[in-house]
């Protein structure tokens, strides 16, 4: 396994309005083969951070390295990003989306995608606009996880999914990803996602990491779950 971090961010800065920094000197390093939960209250900059990493936003300052190289247009080959919203053309059929990913991404595994769609009872000939919000989210997650990427960025991956399917999706995340790849998950459903996390980072406003570490170690040391620790840390 390579020792080069999959993702390294140094002094990352981003603001949408002058004088109101969403991220101010944000630092984070993700080693290969880790599933990291990036947890924090609404508006603390989690989604902004993910968008900066996948190139949807341009940082005001700082550095982003993917596998030891500065982020560039080529980095999209290594990153598989799931935004928090439905982003496929609603007129498309599921099978057409599979073909699109198959065409553009050399690391896309069509057989895996079709199997997962089948397991979650999603008809391949269904148009996205005929599916419920939860079903659309499942389709998106399957598409993103069917790639053999080096870095998966999942922004609220199970927010709209029913509890019964969450377990399947989390198992899918664990069983499908490349052991050398890393996953960053942002979510509010900490209790659901906790069992799959290797590491966690509690993020507060301004992009400050207030607590981070290995999930098992922290649980053993404190005797508390990440969900409980999060509630303590961010109690209103």
């Amino acid at each position: 396994m390579s020792n080069v971090p999959v993702l390294k961010c140094e002094n990352l800065c981003k603001s949408y309005q002058a004088g109101k920094a969403v991220l101010d000197g944000f630092n984070l390093t993700i080693e290969p083969g880790r599933i990291v939960g990036l947890l924090g209250p609404n508006g603390c900059g989690k989604s902004t951070f993910l968008k900066l990493v996948c190139g949807l936003l341009v940082p005001d300052g700082g550095k982003i390295e993917i596998e030891g190289k500065e982020r560039s247009e080529e980095s999209n080959l290594l990153i598989s990003f799931l935004p928090e919203r439905t982003y496929f053309d609603s007129r498309s059929k599921v099978s057409e989306l599979i073909s699109l990913f198959d065409d553009f991404y050399a690391d896309f595994d069509r057989a895996v995608a079709e199997k997962m769609m089948n397991d979650l009872h999603i008809p391949l000939d269904a148009k996205l606009k005929t599916l419920s919000k939860g079903m659309k989210e499942k389709v998106q997650l399957i598409m993103v996880m069917s790639r053999k990427a080096k870095l998966y960025l999942l922004d609220e991956p199970i927010g709209g999914v029913d509890p019964a399917s969450r377990e399947y999706i989390l198992n899918t995340i664990i069983s499908n990803y490349n052991p050398e790849a890393s996953i960053i998950i942002t979510t509010h459903l900490i209790a659901d996602i906790e069992p799959v996390l290797d590491d966690f980072a509690f993020m507060t406003y301004g992009g400050n990491i207030v607590r981070m570490g290995n999930a098992d170690t922290v649980r053993e040391a404190t005797g508390k779950t990440l969900d409980e620790l999060f509630r303590e840390e961010f109690r209103c």
Partner: peptide
């Protein structure tokens, strides 16, 4: 929202 797909494709802008 399709821009999220457009700009994350492994294609030069």
């Amino acid at each position: 929202d399709e821009a999220y797909l457009t700009f994350t494709l492994p294609v030069k802008r």
